[in-house]
């Protein structure tokens, strides 16, 4: 995984960058499986490695395949991302250990979720669709809004180029 990230940083060919980020997503999915988060792993593999790779390749066919050399040196962004990363690592050190049943997050609502009054064997589904139904409704609305926004943005572009839109509608 580290190799994939390092190669990602150094490569300037966008095609290999996209393929490498797909590989990275698949490795991430295997890590999530190892952490017993199978639902998230499935999402990561299908969205991160599958759909977004295809979409990025589609975007790549609209532009040049070599990354342009940046106009200025990236020292400030580098410093910002390094310090934020260091902060996150520092914060993560304060978290309770993995599989620690005495951790505060397992004390409040989790026992009730685990009693499983919904009687659905997969607790993740029960939490997402039933206990946290409002959240998931919000998420679905977000996905819908993203799609609607994209339609609004790209449709308008089509009208500016009437020749192309006519040809595409025929096809």
């Amino acid at each position: 995984m580290a190799i994939a990230v390092l190669t990602l940083l150094l490569t300037r060919n966008l095609f290999s960058v996209i393929v490498l980020s797909g590989i990275y997503s698949f490795l991430m999915a295997t890590i999530l499986v190892a952490l017993d988060a199978v639902d998230v792993a499935m999402t990561e593999a299908s969205v991160g490695a599958g759909i977004s790779t295809v979409l990025l390749l589609g975007a790549l066919s609209l532009c040049k395949s070599e990354e342009a050399t940046p106009a200025h040196k990236p020292w400030l962004p580098l410093a910002v991302s390094l310090s934020v990363g260091a902060l996150l690592v520092y914060g993560a050190l304060g978290l309770p250990g993995f599989n620690d049943t005495a951790a505060p997050m397992h004390q409040n609502v989790v026992p009730r979720y685990m009693q499983n009054e919904v009687d659905v064997p997969n607790v993740v589904t029960a939490v997402l669709a039933s206990f946290r139904g409002y959240d998931t409704l919000g998420e679905t609305t977000v996905v819908f809004t993203a799609g609607a926004g994209l339609i609004a943005l790209l449709r308008r572009r089509k009208k500016i180029e009437p020749v192309e839109s006519g040809r595409k509608d025929d096809a």
């Binding site: 979409l55 659905v120 669709a129 139904g133 679905t140 819908f144 799609g147």
Partner: peptide, 24 residues
């Protein structure tokens, strides 16, 4: 509960696959 979760999941799947296809 099972009935509710079933239809909710159907709704989520419909929207998500629609959006993904539309983007593509």
């Amino acid at each position: 509960q099972h009935r509710g979760i079933f239809w909710v999941e159907v709704g989520v799947a419909t929207t998500v696959s629609g959006v993904m296809l539309k983007i593509y």
